[in-house]
Structures are given as C-alpha cells and as structure tokens.
C-alpha cells in the first residue's frame, strides 16, 4: 500500500517535472508588433525568466549585424513585454528579434493581410493607374461616357488583370528568370494577355452566350490596353512574390474600375454643361480627369502603417 503510494507520488512528481520543463522549453513568441515611434510589443506563451535589456537583440532585416539599442524593458503582465528602443522603428519594415534566455529567434514583420491590404490600397488610390500613372487612357476616355459600360468594363477588366498577372508571374518566375531569358519578357507578356483574352472570349461564348454578347466587346478592347500589360511588367520589375503580385493586380484593377466609374458619373453630367467649342469632346474630358487627378493627389500621403 505504502509502496504503491510512493510509486504514485514519484510518478506524479516526474509528470509535473516533465510538464515544467516542457513549459520552460516551450516559451514561444505569440505575437510581436511594432508600434510607432519606437516600441515593440511582445506576447509570449509563458513568463520570461529574464527581462533585462541585454536579453533582447533586435536588428533590421537589412542590417542584421547592427543591433538597435534597447532603452527600456517594461513587463506589462507575466507574458507581455514592451521594449522601447533608442531609434525609430517602422511598422512596415522587417526586423529580427533574438533572445538570449531562452534562446529564441522571431521575425518581426507586418501581418500578411496588412501588407496585402496596403499594396492594394496603394495601387488603387495612391498610385491609381489612371490618375497618377496615366495608364489605359485610350480605353479610359473611350469607355467612360456611360455609367453602365463603365461598370461592365471595370469588372471584366479586373478579372482579366488578375488572371494575366498570375499567369505572367508564373512564367516570369519559373521560366524566364531561371533561364535568363529576361529579354523575352515583353513578347511573353503580350502573348499571355492575348491568349488569356482569347481563351476567356471562347469560354464565355460557349458557356454564356448572353453574357458574351454583353461583355465580349470589352474583352476585345483589353488586348490593346497598356494597364493590363503594365501590371506584369511592374511585378517583374519589383521581383514581387505571388501574393504581392496578386494584391497589385487586384488593387490596380479596382483602381481602374473606380476611375472609370467616377469619370462616367461626371461625364454624364457634362452632357448638360455648356462647354466652349474648342474644348468640346475630349479636351474637356481631359480637364475633368485632371481635376480627379488633383483630388487623388490627396491620397498620396496615405500610409497604412503610419
């Protein structure tokens, strides 16, 4: 009886010890967030054994050999630590955090969704293809006379853009770059655009003839448009990853659709305006686009992370 009891106590002690070491070894960084101007907020899975400044080493991803000096360590509660640094930290940049005790390393970077959202917002508003990069103007002025057409075009456009951007990205990453055939870029990308448009056109005609009758004409207009080609080119130029490329395509498409919609609304009213004769038609449309561009300049300070 007493022997069995001794065994039991021993087993329990071993179990609790095992659990204890497991917990000590299992201190993990649950979240790490940079808060401007110079704080790093950390949450661990268990209390830290050491919370002095020497225990933490933070470096910028581009300068891993130069630690950023820690000026203050604050324990919020057992598992939360707030580090204050002597330099400004940028929430959008990548850092690496290393701990001496327990030995831990963690990449501090903005969440993927936040980055994607910021790429999308930047492409749609800050660098709107029409109003600040001046791409796709031929179609923009041609199709923005009626609101219905503008909406249809905007939707078809965004879809084709996402499709072509992803196909071009795959070709560029897996074929052109490894084979060092970068000089075929333009040829390949325009080929992708033309094939995707042709493919969608055939698909649509076979499966949804009604839709095709309504939207087929926009598909055909897309081939000779520079925006659709600009997205793969910009992705290749910046060596973007798949998610960044997707975000840029969605953002650019949405930005173009937005520009078309806004412009078509304004141009429908322009019909009733009295315009001096030399300005009638395209010149006044250009001036109108200029006003929109001026308004869009207001977005350019927008930073998701500031």
């Amino acid at each position: 009886m007493s022997r069995a009891r001794a065994w039991l106590t021993a087993a329990l002690a071993a179990l609790s010890l095992a659990a204890g070491t497991a917990r000590a070894a299992e201190v993990r960084v649950l979240s790490a967030r940079v808060v401007a101007p110079s704080e790093l907020r950390l949450r661990f899975s268990a209390p830290l054994p050491r919370a002095d400044a020497e225990n933490f080493r933070l470096t910028h991803a581009q300068a891993p050999d130069i630690p950023i000096p820690v000026s203050r360590v604050r324990l919020a509660d057992g598992n939360r630590v707030v580090l204050t640094f002597e330099q400004r930290l940028m929430p959008a940049e990548h850092y690496r955090l290393e701990l001496a005790d327990p030995p831990l390393a963690h990449d501090v970077r903005p969440a993927a969704w936040a980055l994607l959202l910021s790429v999308m917002i930047a492409a749609a508003f800050i660098n709107n293809f029409v109003f600040t990069r001046y791409l796709g103007l031929c179609i923009f002025f041609g199709v923005s006379k009626k609101r219905d057409t503008a909406i249809g075009m905007g939707i078809v456009f965004t879809l084709v853009m996402i499709f072509t951007a992803m196909v071009s990205w795959s070709l560029d990453t897996f074929v052109l770059r490894p084979l060092q055939l970068g000089f075929f870029q333009i040829l390949v990308f325009i080929g992708v655009v033309a094939s995707v448009v042709q493919f969608l056109d055939t698909m649509l005609r076979k499966t949804h003839p009604v839709l095709h009758r309504k939207w087929g004409i926009y598909l055909m207009l897309i081939t000779t448009n520079c925006i659709i080609l600009a997205v793969p080119l910009l992705n290749a130029q910046a060596s973007n990853g798949p998610l960044d490329s997707l975000a840029l395509a969605i953002g650019s498409g949405a930005g173009f659709a937005l520009a078309l919609f806004l412009m078509s609304c304004a141009r429908e009213r322009l019909e009733y305006a009295r315009v001096p004769q030399p300005f009638q038609g395209l010149p006044i449309a250009f001036a109108l686009a200029g006003l929109f561009a001026l308004a869009f300049m207001g977005f350019s300070g927008l930073d998701f992370f500031r």
């Binding site: 001096p276 030399p278 300005f279 010149p283 250009f286 001036a287 200029g290 006003l291 300049m297």
Partner: peptide, 22 residues
Amino acid sequence: ALPAGGFFSIALLMALFNWIER
C-alpha cells in the same frame, strides 16, 4: 509638372489644335 497638370496641358493643347483648325 505634377501628374494632374499633364491632363490639363493636353486639354489646353488639344483645344488649341481644334481652335486653329476651326
């Protein structure tokens, strides 16, 4: 020189072309 100015420049020059032709 700003992005928006480009649109206005073209509007003005296009109107000028139209006016001359007229």
